[in-house]
Design a protein around this nucleic acid. Structure first.
Lengths: 194, 194
DNA sequence: TTTTTTGTTGATTGACGAGTCAATAAACTT
DNA sequence: AAGTTTATTGACTCGTCAATCAACAAAAAA
């Protein structure tokens, strides 16, 4: 039975299963056994490859982050104008992918974890800086010296809109969030703050 | 020992202790015993008065919400102009009170809970609607028909700014958040969207 | 004064879960 | 063929915790 080179396959399956289980439970209150079963292996194997629950969680968070990063990168392909760049980032951020139960669960619990687990906070910092930097590339040609503050505000607005879309009753509406963020941009660009 | 009329006192102590313990742990991963000890009683008594862990959590969340509500109401006292009203709401939302560890912990876990616990989602809806309504009173004289959308955006921005202040390294800076939210307002008011 | 209501706890139950370990087995090395 | 590395699990340990209960204490009602 034991085929060699299983490690990356098992790890990937465990990460996927972890995200799925967090999404199902809506919290980090999931057992290693549940995760392992979902991934089709014994809990001992999960411990063998990850060493503990927290490492598994962090790997899962990291994965969610990298999926998001890939989505943004994809949306940025072939974009030429600064405005289109911002819009692409917004659309990627509010795409249906990110409204899936598992992804939502991962993000919300990510925030909770970031309070106390340094590695989680580090990952979150990477996400925030990357978003900021991506926005800045588009904003600088449009807003010049104000680009920095604008990017901070827009970043926060994105997080806030996501939170609200995700926790409201009824299905989330990504388009509305995009529209709101674009309105923010537009009105801030109309008049270059002196 | 048993003095009568203890129920409200004990309940209040338990709610306070619950918030403190959630803040300490940064998560809902706190035991009833920890909470009860912090409140100076046996865990059995906590069960006696609240019937279970979840009810305790919800009571704690509810309490955090009502403290915030009271703070906003207080800040609104004596405010006359629409602009001052918005500013007051922002200052109350980003006051040092709300940056205390316990309050932060309560809010972040509140979001997590709102995914799956209907009562938590209900409470969150109340908060969001109350904030929106408070903002609207100030926005309508300033923005007329656009007040609704403005309030939605501003509400999301407040949540997002809070999230970022709270999860960044270093001490949170309420003033910066207030400034950012006011900039949002100002630029949206400069030109009445057609 | 007896009874009832209210407050209170220690001890217990019953369940569950993280992490460890010894053992098994296939593949690869020498 | 013997030894080593990699994969894999069932069984076990040790701890924890929510919830229950019987029992005790004091005040209020009867």
């Amino acid at each position: 039975m034991p085929k060699l080179g299983m490690e990356p396959i098992r790890k990937a399956a465990l990460v996927k299963a972890t995200i799925a289980e967090i999404g199902r439970a809506g919290s980090l209150d999931v057992t290693v056994s549940q995760i392992a079963r979902q991934a089709g292996m014994s809990s001992a194997l999960a411990h063998h490859y990850f060493g503990g629950k927290e490492a598994l969680f962090l790997a899962a968070m990291s994965h969610v982050l990298s999926l998001y990063g890939a989505e943004v990168r994809g949306a940025l392909k072939g974009v030429r104008t600064p405005e289109a760049r911002i819009t692409a980032i917004l659309q990627a951020s509010f795409s249906p992918t990110n409204f899936r139960r598992e992804v939502v669960g991962a993000w919300l619990n990510f925030y909770v974890l970031a309070q106390t687990v340094p590695e989680a906070r580090r990952l979150l910092g990477i996400y925030q800086r990357r978003l900021r930097s991506n926005l800045l590339v588009g904003l600088r040609p449009l807003a010049g010296a104000q680009a920095g503050e604008l990017a901070d505000g827009l970043g926060a607005l994105i997080d806030g809109l996501y939170l609200r879309e995700v926790l409201k009753d009824g299905p989330p509406d990504g388009a509305a969030a995009v529209a709101c963020a674009r309105a923010y941009l537009k009105s801030h660009l109309k008049e270059p703050t002196p």
